[in-house]
Each structure stands twice: as C-alpha cells, then as structure tokens.
C-alpha cells in the first residue's frame, strides 16, 4: 500500500532538485525551470495532505492557485527574460552581474 510518506518523499525530491537547479544553473531560463519544480512540489504536498486529512477541497484549491500563480509568474519572468536578452544579448546570468558588492 502506498502511504503518505511515499508521496511526500517524491515531492521532497522534486523540491530539493528544484532548489538545486536554481542554485546552480547559469541560464536564466534554467533557473526558472527550477522554480517550477519547487512550486510543483509544494502543490503536490498540498494535495497529498488534503487527501490524507480528508480536506480534499482545500488542498485542491490551494494547488489550483499554485498552478495559476506559477503560470502568472512564468509569464512575467519570461517577459523579463526577453528584456534581459535584449539588453545584454545573453541570458547567461553569470554575465548579468553589473549590480554587485
């Protein structure tokens, strides 16, 4: 039988790999892909807990909002990414480091 822990473990793996991605990728879009993983892990967690605590509606709605907001965030982030590409001719974040110190 699949227990809650199994689900949570998969979700934790997604979360950690997402964080690893954002902390190491050079390409701005690569980092964004990582954030999608982090958000998906959280949404999955909500559904898992909603299911096992018999608060399905709440968990689902939360996950739904996560999906919606992730989409919104991605739209803005990609627009910003295109802007960066215009101004820097690259989306390699290692080269986008005028501001530092």
């Amino acid at each position: 039988m699949i227990s809650i822990q199994h689900y949570l473990l998969v979700s934790a793996a997604i979360f950690v790999l997402g964080l690893l991605t954002v902390a190491t990728r050079r390409n701005a879009l690569g980092i964004l892909l990582g954030t999608e993983l982090v958000l998906n892990a959280a949404a999955l967690n909500m559904v898992i807990f909603g299911r096992y605590s018999n608060h399905m509606a709440e968990g689902s709605i939360y996950a739904l909002f996560v999906i919606v907001l992730a989409a919104a965030e991605a739209a803005v982030a990609l627009a910003v990414g295109l802007m960066i590409y215009r101004n820097f001719k690259t989306i390699d974040t290692v080269e986008v480091d005028d501001l530092k110190g």
Binding site: I2, Y7, V10, L44, V47, I48, R51, M56, S60, A63
Partner: peptide, 8 residues
C-alpha cells in the same frame, strides 16, 4: 498522474 492517484 499523482494528482489522479490521489483522487484530485
């Protein structure tokens, strides 16, 4: 698929 498995 997980969502489906969980009944969502």
């Amino acid at each position: 698929a997980f969502f489906a498995l969980l009944g969502a």
